[in-house]
Amino acid sequence: MKLTRSRRAILVIGFAAVFPWAGHAESLAIRNCTWCHGVSAHGYSPAPGLAGQRREYIQNQLKNFSEHTRDNPFSRLYMWGATANLSPATAHGLAFYFSTLSPQAANDGNRELEAEGRSIYQLGMPDSNTAACVVCHGPNAEGVGEIPRLGGLAYTYLKRRLEQWGEGYHAAARPPMPRIASKLSANQIEALASYLSFVK
């Protein structure tokens, strides 16, 4: 669901009143994110797209980085430092700002695996007791609340993230992701990452 232009304008105005720096692309806090996540926040490998990501999810992840519970190598290398001195108010402001930007699909997966990925995403695999992603992440992989948007994220990011759940990273996150992702085979992960990279 896309925000209407007027609703977005209201959000941005309201946001700018609370965070006066937010209206400027030059604002330091936003600039520090967009160095890696891209000037339009559409992602720049390996940094994922943030545009249109769920506000609660971004905020929650920033907290996870600063508390060191999200602990994969790139998080340790980049995000632990980036969030070390982030105040809750700034984290909230950044999460709000990026959630209002329009997402753009990375379109960088393997087209031949798209159909298989869609089937896993939409229907799950009852024979191997693998849950359907759609139930929590939504029919267009748009996410809700603390559950992230997956649609349009980059293939390599999605693939590594799914692999890392099974490898035990970010184990302090609430279930179900560590359990569900660890049931996926390497081929199934590639299919899911491919499909999701094309979802608008």
Binding site: A131, V135, C136, G143, G145, P176
Partner: peptide, 24 residues
């Protein structure tokens, strides 16, 4: 046990329900 784990993946470890995109 594998099937129960499958139920718990969505309905919660103690069957408490979950607020996904759709309510579980």
């Amino acid at each position: 046990e594998a099937k129960i784990g499958y139920c718990q993946d969505c309905h919660g470890p103690s069957g408490q329900g979950y607020r996904g995109f759709y309510p579980i």
